[in-house]
Each structure stands twice: as C-alpha cells, then as structure tokens.
C-alpha cells in the first residue's frame, strides 16, 4: 500500500506539473458596435464604429425605469451571441452616479433614473476583472 500511495502521489504531482497555467481561455469580447433596444424591440440608439451614437436614445423621467435590451455587433454588423458567456457582464453607468443606476437582468436590464437633468451614460462590458468594451458617452435627458 505505501508503494501504491507513493505512486499515486507521484502521478498527482506529475499531473499538476502538466496542467496548463491557464486551463480555460475566455477570449475578449471583440465587439465593434452596440445597439440599445426597448423591451418591445424598438431601436433606441446604436454606435457607429463605436466612435459616436446615432438615434434618440432612451427617454425617461426621474423616478422611472426603462427595460433595455443591449445587443453587440461584430465588425460585419452581425449580432454576437453572448448568452453562453457567463464571464461577461453588461453594465450601463451614468457619468454622475447620482443620476441613476443599472440593474442587470436577462436579457439586458433595467435603467433607473433618479434625478432630472441632462446626463450622460455609457455601456461597458466587464470581462472577469477588466473592461473589454466601452462606448462613448450617450446623452440622456431625464425629465422631472
């Protein structure tokens, strides 16, 4: 038995030595653009080459919330399927954190507006511990 135990220990050590330091590769999100849609499928805004926004953007009043669906496009305009990527997390953040917040849901999430005024928000994709994708600021007017 001691011999078997020694062999088992040796095999375990050898196996550990052969294990790849990065066993699972989770690639970066290689998105080119993002589209914001309402829950009903209406397109509210989209980026162009991720340099600027087109579209009116979401409209909401202070104290209201809006269900949004966020879709990412590859460089050829095709939608990326990220449903299987549990390592990615979509976030919307206001430039002024007191202006509102984002509640992630599936799919998309809900955007809450807290204070009226002209605000700016952007879309980020977190990949594990870092940001893979970030859009330019999108102007949002929050009604009183």
């Amino acid at each position: 038995m001691p011999r078997l135990r020694n062999v088992a220990v040796a095999v375990a050590l050898a196996g550990a030595a052969c294990e790849h330091p990065i066993a699972v590769v989770t690639p970066h999100l290689e998105a080119a653009d993002v589209v914001l849609r309402s829950a009903e499928g209406e397109e509210l805004a989209r980026t162009r080459d991720n340099r600027s926004w087109t579209g009116a953007g979401p409209t909401l009043a202070a104290g209201d919330s809006l269900r949004l669906v966020v879709r990412f496009l590859d460089f050829q305009g095709g939608e990326l399927d990220l449903d299987f990527r549990s390592d990615l997390q979509v976030r919307l953040e206001f430039e002024d954190p007191s202006a509102g917040f984002w509640e992630p849901l599936s799919p998309g999430g809900r955007l809450f507006a807290l204070s009226p005024g002209d605000h700016r928000l952007r879309v980020l994709v977190w990949h594990l511990d870092h940001v893979d994708f970030v859009t330019p600021w999108l102007d949002v007017a929050v009604a009183p």
Partner: peptide, 23 residues
C-alpha cells in the same frame, strides 16, 4: 525537456493586467 511557465503582470493597484501561461 518539458516546461511549465506562468507569468502575471501586476498593474498599478495590484490587479493582473495580463497573465501568460505556457506548456
């Protein structure tokens, strides 16, 4: 030879900016 190599690059704030692994 058989080699296992791992390298982590710690950025300001202590987070790992890049991690390399190679067998």
């Amino acid at each position: 030879s058989a080699i296992r190599f791992e390298q982590s690059e710690f950025e300001k704030g202590g987070f790992v900016g890049t991690r390399f692994g190679q067998l």
